[in-house]
Design a binder for these strands. Structure first.
Lengths: 182, 182
DNA sequence: ACCTGAACACCGTTCAAGT
DNA sequence: ACCTGAACACCGTTCAAGT
Protein backbone atom coordinates (compact mmCIF):
# COMPACT_ATOMS: atom_id res chain seq x y z
CA UNK A 1 0.00 0.00 0.00
CA UNK A 2 1.55 3.27 -1.12
CA UNK A 3 1.86 6.18 1.27
CA UNK A 4 -0.80 8.88 0.98
CA UNK A 5 -2.17 11.81 2.89
CA UNK A 6 -5.22 9.78 3.92
CA UNK A 7 -3.03 6.94 5.21
CA UNK A 8 -0.96 9.42 7.23
CA UNK A 9 -4.08 10.96 8.77
CA UNK A 10 -5.37 7.49 9.61
CA UNK A 11 -2.10 6.50 11.23
CA UNK A 12 -2.13 9.82 13.11
CA UNK A 13 -5.53 9.02 14.59
CA UNK A 14 -4.21 5.64 15.66
CA UNK A 15 -1.20 7.17 17.40
CA UNK A 16 -3.45 9.76 19.03
CA UNK A 17 -5.68 7.10 20.56
CA UNK A 18 -2.79 4.87 21.57
CA UNK A 19 -0.26 7.40 22.90
CA UNK A 20 -1.97 10.80 23.19
CA UNK A 21 -1.22 14.18 21.65
CA UNK A 22 1.96 14.71 23.65
CA UNK A 23 3.53 11.60 22.18
CA UNK A 24 2.25 12.08 18.66
CA UNK A 25 5.45 12.69 16.70
CA UNK A 26 6.09 12.62 12.99
CA UNK A 27 8.64 9.87 13.62
CA UNK A 28 6.09 7.75 15.43
CA UNK A 29 3.51 8.20 12.67
CA UNK A 30 6.16 7.23 10.14
CA UNK A 31 7.10 4.16 12.17
CA UNK A 32 3.47 3.03 12.28
CA UNK A 33 3.44 3.21 8.48
CA UNK A 34 6.77 1.41 8.11
CA UNK A 35 8.37 4.42 6.52
CA UNK A 36 11.07 7.01 7.23
CA UNK A 37 9.97 10.27 8.88
CA UNK A 38 11.11 12.36 5.93
CA UNK A 39 8.74 10.52 3.61
CA UNK A 40 5.73 12.11 5.33
CA UNK A 41 6.77 15.53 4.05
CA UNK A 42 6.03 14.50 0.53
CA UNK A 43 2.33 14.26 1.41
CA UNK A 44 1.92 16.74 4.28
CA UNK A 45 3.66 20.15 4.53
CA UNK A 46 4.34 19.96 8.28
CA UNK A 47 3.16 18.60 11.61
CA UNK A 48 0.77 21.47 12.27
CA UNK A 49 -1.21 20.77 9.12
CA UNK A 50 -1.40 17.09 10.06
CA UNK A 51 -2.80 18.09 13.44
CA UNK A 52 -5.32 20.35 11.69
CA UNK A 53 -6.41 17.42 9.55
CA UNK A 54 -6.81 15.25 12.65
CA UNK A 55 -8.84 18.04 14.24
CA UNK A 56 -11.12 18.13 11.21
CA UNK A 57 -11.56 14.38 11.54
CA UNK A 58 -12.70 14.77 15.15
CA UNK A 59 -15.14 17.52 14.19
CA UNK A 60 -16.62 15.49 11.35
CA UNK A 61 -18.49 13.53 14.03
CA UNK A 62 -20.44 16.57 15.28
CA UNK A 63 -24.10 16.15 14.29
CA UNK A 64 -26.45 18.96 13.23
CA UNK A 65 -29.42 19.16 15.60
CA UNK A 66 -33.02 18.90 14.39
CA UNK A 67 -34.13 22.08 12.64
CA UNK A 68 -37.48 21.98 14.37
CA UNK A 69 -36.01 22.65 17.82
CA UNK A 70 -36.37 26.07 19.45
CA UNK A 71 -33.15 28.10 19.35
CA UNK A 72 -32.20 27.56 22.99
CA UNK A 73 -32.79 23.82 22.75
CA UNK A 74 -31.00 23.61 19.42
CA UNK A 75 -27.88 25.29 20.85
CA UNK A 76 -27.85 23.04 23.92
CA UNK A 77 -28.13 19.91 21.77
CA UNK A 78 -25.42 21.16 19.42
CA UNK A 79 -23.10 21.88 22.37
CA UNK A 80 -23.65 18.34 23.68
CA UNK A 81 -22.78 16.99 20.24
CA UNK A 82 -19.54 18.94 20.12
CA UNK A 83 -18.64 17.79 23.63
CA UNK A 84 -19.31 14.16 22.74
CA UNK A 85 -17.13 14.40 19.62
CA UNK A 86 -14.26 16.03 21.53
CA UNK A 87 -14.35 13.51 24.37
CA UNK A 88 -14.67 10.54 22.00
CA UNK A 89 -10.96 10.70 21.10
CA UNK A 90 -7.98 10.95 23.40
CA UNK A 91 -6.91 14.62 23.71
CA UNK A 92 -9.62 15.51 21.20
CA UNK A 93 -10.49 18.75 22.99
CA UNK A 94 -6.91 19.99 23.20
CA UNK A 95 -6.26 19.03 19.59
CA UNK A 96 -9.28 20.94 18.30
CA UNK A 97 -8.70 23.92 20.60
CA UNK A 98 -5.14 24.48 19.41
CA UNK A 99 -5.96 24.02 15.73
CA UNK A 100 -8.85 26.45 16.12
CA UNK A 101 -6.70 29.09 17.82
CA UNK A 102 -4.27 28.96 14.91
CA UNK A 103 -7.12 29.32 12.44
CA UNK A 104 -6.17 26.04 10.77
CA UNK A 105 -8.45 23.24 9.66
CA UNK A 106 -11.17 23.29 7.08
CA UNK A 107 -14.12 23.05 9.44
CA UNK A 108 -15.74 26.31 10.60
CA UNK A 109 -17.19 25.04 13.84
CA UNK A 110 -18.87 28.32 14.75
CA UNK A 111 -20.88 28.58 11.53
CA UNK A 112 -23.88 26.35 12.40
CA UNK A 113 -24.65 28.00 15.78
CA UNK A 114 -24.08 31.44 14.21
CA UNK A 115 -26.74 30.66 11.61
CA UNK A 116 -29.18 29.42 14.23
CA UNK A 117 -28.55 32.51 16.39
CA UNK A 118 -29.11 34.80 13.42
CA UNK A 119 -32.43 33.06 12.72
CA UNK A 120 -33.40 33.58 16.36
CA UNK A 121 -32.80 37.30 16.05
CA UNK A 122 -29.54 37.55 18.00
CA UNK A 123 -27.94 40.88 17.08
CA UNK A 124 -24.36 39.53 16.96
CA UNK A 125 -24.61 35.89 15.94
CA UNK A 126 -20.92 35.47 15.00
CA UNK A 127 -19.52 36.87 18.25
CA UNK A 128 -22.08 34.95 20.26
CA UNK A 129 -21.35 31.67 18.46
CA UNK A 130 -17.62 32.10 19.05
CA UNK A 131 -18.32 32.76 22.73
CA UNK A 132 -20.27 29.51 22.94
CA UNK A 133 -17.49 27.69 21.14
CA UNK A 134 -14.77 28.89 23.50
CA UNK A 135 -16.93 27.97 26.46
CA UNK A 136 -17.34 24.45 25.11
CA UNK A 137 -13.69 23.98 24.23
CA UNK A 138 -12.35 25.34 27.50
CA UNK A 139 -14.63 23.19 29.60
CA UNK A 140 -13.91 20.08 27.55
CA UNK A 141 -10.14 20.57 27.58
CA UNK A 142 -10.20 20.88 31.35
CA UNK A 143 -12.57 17.94 31.77
CA UNK A 144 -10.55 15.67 29.49
CA UNK A 145 -7.25 16.65 31.07
CA UNK A 146 -8.57 16.04 34.56
CA UNK A 147 -10.11 12.71 33.56
CA UNK A 148 -6.73 11.57 32.23
CA UNK A 149 -4.89 12.73 35.32
CA UNK A 150 -7.27 10.61 37.37
CA UNK A 151 -6.73 7.59 35.13
CA UNK A 152 -3.00 8.00 35.66
CA UNK A 153 -3.60 8.16 39.39
CA UNK A 154 -1.98 11.59 39.61
CA UNK A 155 -5.08 13.04 41.19
CA UNK A 156 -7.98 11.33 42.88
CA UNK A 157 -10.85 13.73 42.51
CA UNK A 158 -12.80 13.70 39.28
CA UNK A 159 -16.58 13.42 39.12
CA UNK A 160 -17.75 12.77 35.58
CA UNK A 161 -21.41 13.44 36.34
CA UNK A 162 -20.52 16.77 37.96
CA UNK A 163 -18.47 17.72 34.89
CA UNK A 164 -21.42 16.96 32.63
CA UNK A 165 -23.66 18.99 34.90
CA UNK A 166 -21.27 21.96 34.99
CA UNK A 167 -21.10 21.85 31.20
CA UNK A 168 -24.88 21.88 30.83
CA UNK A 169 -25.18 24.73 33.30
CA UNK A 170 -22.50 26.83 31.59
CA UNK A 171 -24.10 26.36 28.18
CA UNK A 172 -27.56 27.12 29.58
CA UNK A 173 -26.26 30.33 31.14
CA UNK A 174 -24.75 31.60 27.91
CA UNK A 175 -27.82 30.58 25.92
CA UNK A 176 -30.05 32.37 28.43
CA UNK A 177 -28.08 35.54 27.81
CA UNK A 178 -28.03 35.06 24.04
CA UNK A 179 -31.47 33.94 22.94
CA UNK A 180 -34.15 36.59 23.23
CA UNK A 181 -37.31 34.85 22.10
CA UNK A 182 -36.50 31.21 22.88
CA UNK B 1 24.53 36.22 42.10
CA UNK B 2 23.58 32.70 43.13
CA UNK B 3 20.92 30.78 41.22
CA UNK B 4 17.48 30.69 42.82
CA UNK B 5 13.91 29.87 41.99
CA UNK B 6 13.05 33.58 41.79
CA UNK B 7 15.94 34.25 39.41
CA UNK B 8 14.83 31.38 37.18
CA UNK B 9 11.25 32.68 37.08
CA UNK B 10 12.56 36.16 36.23
CA UNK B 11 14.73 34.81 33.43
CA UNK B 12 11.76 32.79 32.21
CA UNK B 13 9.65 35.93 31.90
CA UNK B 14 12.47 37.57 29.95
CA UNK B 15 12.69 34.63 27.52
CA UNK B 16 8.90 34.63 27.19
CA UNK B 17 8.80 38.27 26.16
CA UNK B 18 11.82 37.99 23.88
CA UNK B 19 11.19 34.64 22.16
CA UNK B 20 7.65 33.49 22.97
CA UNK B 21 6.31 30.37 24.64
CA UNK B 22 7.24 28.06 21.75
CA UNK B 23 10.91 28.96 22.10
CA UNK B 24 11.01 28.97 25.88
CA UNK B 25 13.26 26.03 26.67
CA UNK B 26 15.02 25.08 29.88
CA UNK B 27 18.33 25.34 28.01
CA UNK B 28 17.56 28.88 26.88
CA UNK B 29 16.58 29.94 30.40
CA UNK B 30 19.80 28.39 31.69
CA UNK B 31 21.81 30.21 29.00
CA UNK B 32 20.28 33.53 30.01
CA UNK B 33 21.46 32.87 33.56
CA UNK B 34 24.92 31.76 32.46
CA UNK B 35 24.39 28.29 33.84
CA UNK B 36 24.06 24.71 32.63
CA UNK B 37 20.52 23.41 31.95
CA UNK B 38 20.80 20.71 34.59
CA UNK B 39 21.40 23.31 37.31
CA UNK B 40 17.81 24.53 37.00
CA UNK B 41 16.54 21.21 38.32
CA UNK B 42 18.02 21.94 41.69
CA UNK B 43 15.54 24.81 42.12
CA UNK B 44 12.58 23.79 39.98
CA UNK B 45 11.22 20.22 39.65
CA UNK B 46 10.45 20.43 35.93
CA UNK B 47 9.51 22.70 33.04
CA UNK B 48 5.77 22.45 33.70
CA UNK B 49 6.11 23.85 37.21
CA UNK B 50 8.23 26.70 35.86
CA UNK B 51 5.47 27.49 33.38
CA UNK B 52 2.94 27.38 36.21
CA UNK B 53 5.04 29.88 38.15
CA UNK B 54 5.20 32.15 35.09
CA UNK B 55 1.44 31.83 34.75
CA UNK B 56 1.00 32.91 38.36
CA UNK B 57 3.21 35.90 37.66
CA UNK B 58 0.97 36.97 34.78
CA UNK B 59 -2.14 36.57 36.92
CA UNK B 60 -0.68 38.61 39.77
CA UNK B 61 -1.44 41.69 37.65
CA UNK B 62 -5.20 41.07 37.63
CA UNK B 63 -6.89 43.77 39.76
CA UNK B 64 -9.94 43.25 41.97
CA UNK B 65 -12.77 45.54 40.84
CA UNK B 66 -14.44 48.05 43.17
CA UNK B 67 -16.71 46.31 45.66
CA UNK B 68 -19.37 48.96 45.22
CA UNK B 69 -20.11 47.98 41.62
CA UNK B 70 -23.28 46.07 40.75
CA UNK B 71 -22.62 42.39 40.02
CA UNK B 72 -22.93 42.67 36.23
CA UNK B 73 -20.63 45.68 36.10
CA UNK B 74 -18.19 44.08 38.52
CA UNK B 75 -17.89 40.95 36.37
CA UNK B 76 -17.38 42.97 33.18
CA UNK B 77 -14.64 45.04 34.79
CA UNK B 78 -12.99 41.93 36.21
CA UNK B 79 -13.05 40.26 32.78
CA UNK B 80 -11.40 43.31 31.23
CA UNK B 81 -8.72 43.17 33.90
CA UNK B 82 -7.98 39.51 33.18
CA UNK B 83 -7.84 40.22 29.45
CA UNK B 84 -5.44 43.12 29.96
CA UNK B 85 -3.15 40.97 32.13
CA UNK B 86 -3.14 38.10 29.60
CA UNK B 87 -2.43 40.37 26.64
CA UNK B 88 0.25 42.34 28.49
CA UNK B 89 2.78 39.52 28.04
CA UNK B 90 3.70 37.59 24.91
CA UNK B 91 1.72 34.33 24.80
CA UNK B 92 0.26 35.20 28.21
CA UNK B 93 -3.15 33.79 27.34
CA UNK B 94 -1.83 30.46 26.07
CA UNK B 95 0.50 30.14 29.04
CA UNK B 96 -2.28 30.69 31.57
CA UNK B 97 -4.78 28.55 29.69
CA UNK B 98 -2.53 25.50 29.62
CA UNK B 99 -1.44 25.83 33.24
CA UNK B 100 -5.07 26.18 34.25
CA UNK B 101 -6.13 23.09 32.30
CA UNK B 102 -3.50 21.06 34.13
CA UNK B 103 -4.69 22.44 37.47
CA UNK B 104 -1.23 23.83 38.21
CA UNK B 105 -0.35 27.22 39.62
CA UNK B 106 -1.19 28.68 42.97
CA UNK B 107 -3.70 31.26 41.77
CA UNK B 108 -7.37 30.25 41.75
CA UNK B 109 -8.52 32.64 39.07
CA UNK B 110 -12.19 31.64 39.32
CA UNK B 111 -12.52 32.37 43.03
CA UNK B 112 -13.15 36.14 42.94
CA UNK B 113 -15.96 36.03 40.33
CA UNK B 114 -17.44 32.99 42.10
CA UNK B 115 -17.66 34.99 45.32
CA UNK B 116 -19.25 37.94 43.57
CA UNK B 117 -21.75 35.65 41.80
CA UNK B 118 -22.67 33.98 45.09
CA UNK B 119 -23.30 37.41 46.62
CA UNK B 120 -25.55 38.26 43.70
CA UNK B 121 -27.65 35.18 44.32
CA UNK B 122 -26.44 33.04 41.42
CA UNK B 123 -27.43 29.43 42.19
CA UNK B 124 -24.20 27.91 40.84
CA UNK B 125 -21.47 30.47 41.33
CA UNK B 126 -18.54 28.06 40.85
CA UNK B 127 -19.75 26.58 37.58
CA UNK B 128 -20.73 30.03 36.32
CA UNK B 129 -17.38 31.55 37.24
CA UNK B 130 -15.53 28.75 35.46
CA UNK B 131 -17.70 29.32 32.40
CA UNK B 132 -16.76 32.99 32.40
CA UNK B 133 -13.12 32.08 32.82
CA UNK B 134 -13.06 29.69 29.87
CA UNK B 135 -14.82 32.29 27.75
CA UNK B 136 -12.16 34.86 28.60
CA UNK B 137 -9.24 32.51 28.09
CA UNK B 138 -10.48 31.11 24.79
CA UNK B 139 -11.17 34.51 23.31
CA UNK B 140 -7.83 35.91 24.51
CA UNK B 141 -5.81 32.94 23.24
CA UNK B 142 -7.38 33.33 19.81
CA UNK B 143 -6.98 37.11 19.82
CA UNK B 144 -3.34 36.98 20.88
CA UNK B 145 -2.49 34.22 18.41
CA UNK B 146 -4.12 36.09 15.55
CA UNK B 147 -2.42 39.37 16.51
CA UNK B 148 0.95 37.61 16.40
CA UNK B 149 0.21 35.96 13.06
CA UNK B 150 -0.53 39.40 11.67
CA UNK B 151 2.69 40.84 13.08
CA UNK B 152 4.57 38.04 11.37
CA UNK B 153 2.79 38.89 8.14
CA UNK B 154 1.34 35.37 7.91
CA UNK B 155 -2.19 36.71 7.74
CA UNK B 156 -3.40 40.21 6.95
CA UNK B 157 -6.75 40.43 8.65
CA UNK B 158 -6.84 41.34 12.30
CA UNK B 159 -8.94 44.16 13.74
CA UNK B 160 -7.98 44.91 17.32
CA UNK B 161 -11.01 47.10 17.99
CA UNK B 162 -13.32 44.38 16.70
CA UNK B 163 -11.63 41.83 18.95
CA UNK B 164 -12.16 44.08 21.98
CA UNK B 165 -15.78 44.54 20.95
CA UNK B 166 -16.36 40.81 20.49
CA UNK B 167 -14.85 40.21 23.91
CA UNK B 168 -17.12 42.75 25.58
CA UNK B 169 -20.15 41.31 23.83
CA UNK B 170 -19.32 37.73 24.79
CA UNK B 171 -18.81 38.65 28.43
CA UNK B 172 -22.00 40.73 28.46
CA UNK B 173 -23.95 37.80 27.03
CA UNK B 174 -22.77 35.37 29.69
CA UNK B 175 -23.28 37.93 32.45
CA UNK B 176 -26.80 38.59 31.16
CA UNK B 177 -27.55 34.89 31.53
CA UNK B 178 -25.86 34.65 34.93
CA UNK B 179 -26.88 37.65 36.96
CA UNK B 180 -30.48 37.68 38.02
CA UNK B 181 -30.92 40.91 39.92
CA UNK B 182 -28.22 43.09 38.34
C1' DA C 1 7.42 10.87 -8.35
C1' DC C 2 8.42 8.92 -4.23
C1' DC C 3 11.24 7.23 -0.56
C1' DT C 4 15.75 6.28 2.17
C1' DG C 5 19.62 7.60 4.99
C1' DA C 6 21.70 10.78 7.16
C1' DA C 7 22.23 14.94 8.87
C1' DC C 8 21.14 19.70 11.33
C1' DA C 9 19.77 21.99 15.16
C1' DC C 10 17.51 21.37 18.68
C1' DC C 11 14.60 19.29 23.11
C1' DG C 12 13.61 17.71 28.79
C1' DT C 13 15.73 15.30 32.16
C1' DT C 14 19.21 12.61 34.82
C1' DC C 15 23.37 11.93 37.18
C1' DA C 16 28.29 10.97 38.27
C1' DA C 17 31.76 13.92 39.32
C1' DG C 18 33.64 18.01 41.10
C1' DT C 19 33.79 22.14 44.53
C1' DA D 1 24.47 22.17 48.86
C1' DC D 2 25.00 23.48 44.41
C1' DC D 3 26.71 23.27 39.81
C1' DT D 4 29.26 21.20 35.57
C1' DG D 5 29.79 17.99 31.83
C1' DA D 6 28.14 14.64 29.54
C1' DA D 7 24.99 11.60 28.38
C1' DC D 8 20.13 9.38 27.19
C1' DA D 9 16.35 9.30 24.48
C1' DC D 10 14.14 11.83 21.90
C1' DC D 11 12.22 15.99 18.52
C1' DG D 12 10.70 18.61 13.38
C1' DT D 13 12.54 19.34 9.15
C1' DT D 14 15.66 19.20 5.07
C1' DC D 15 17.90 17.12 1.34
C1' DA D 16 21.30 14.54 -1.54
C1' DA D 17 21.05 10.22 -3.27
C1' DG D 18 18.79 6.33 -4.97
C1' DT D 19 14.81 3.81 -7.58
Amino acid sequence: MALSRAAIVDAGLGILDAYGLGDLSMRRVADALGVQAGALYYHVPNKQSLLAALSDEVLAEVPEPDQGLAAGEWLAVWADGVRAALLARRDGAELVASSLALGLGGVDLAAPPARRLADAGNPRPDATARALLHLILGLCVTEQTRAQLRELGVVAEFDEAAARDDFAWAVATLVRGAVLDG
